[in-house]
Amino acid sequence: MIIKKYLFSFIVLIMAVYFGVSFGATSGLDFDSIVQLRLPRVLLAISSGMSLACAGAVLQALFTNPLCDPYTLGVSSGAALGAALGIVLGFEAWFLGLALSAFIGALAFMLVLILISLKTRLTNLTLLLCGVMLGFLGSSGVAICMTIGDAQGMQNALFWLMGDLSRARMHGVLLTLFVSLILIFMLWRKSTQLDAFLMGEENASGLGVSVPKLRRQFIFLTSLLVGLSVASSGMIGFLGLIVPHFSRKLVGSLHFNMIPFCIIWGAVALVLADLMARVLLKPYELPVGVITAFVGAPLFIWMILSDGRSRN
């Protein structure tokens, strides 16, 4: 049964990739240009989609909160702040400049979070609140940069904040994909401990799980994952919230199977969303985050409603 589901998901992914590569702003593009322009975008969509979905799933389990998404801990705001500062300082002229400054921003915020969790014996809830506050801090920092930065650069930043896969270049994308896969694998190996978290903190420690240590490890790994994703493709909202719910509906809450499903469907969702962003209003290009939210929100509501009905 589960093998059939895997097979189905893989086929959908392959179809999504096929569509993603074969359609674009123009028709009849030659093969070389497709490899140069569309393929990196599709690969980046796969990488970011699976990172966000996986990070969302882990955080939802870690905080036993179905409203968590990859951006809840504020790491993404750190990335955004880093990128905005990078633009103010004029790093964006170098193609890696923006991604690098974003990644450094994400790392800085992650460090603060881990320090907070080291210093005190915090419960999950306080850590969550600290993360949300860090997020606000980061976004107000971005707003400050927007007022002092030059108009053209900031317009660029605004696009990037709403999710933008158009910066994809082959070499960078392959590296991102590789590192993301490693991080996801490391998270997946801890799937049984993650299951223990689902039963609440006390129960988890009762089962012999070292809660604070494990929590730090999870925060570290997911932050890297989210930082990498935001640095390479901006803030793509909603995907990390909805795909874990969808996967849970498909294969249940045990993470051994649920995380692989998150990865596949996260990739499918972002590849298709990016395709829509490129094609819908051509030659204009929509920010991909707009599509994920616009399609994702109604889908999510429908999913919850239908879930309630089947339970009744």
Partner: peptide, 16 residues
């Protein structure tokens, strides 16, 4: 042929 707005033009269109 339009290649999109100046602040965010469509690279694929330009290449094509």
């Amino acid at each position: 042929e339009s290649i999109g707005p100046y602040y965010k033009f469509n690279i694929e269109k330009v290449v094509s």
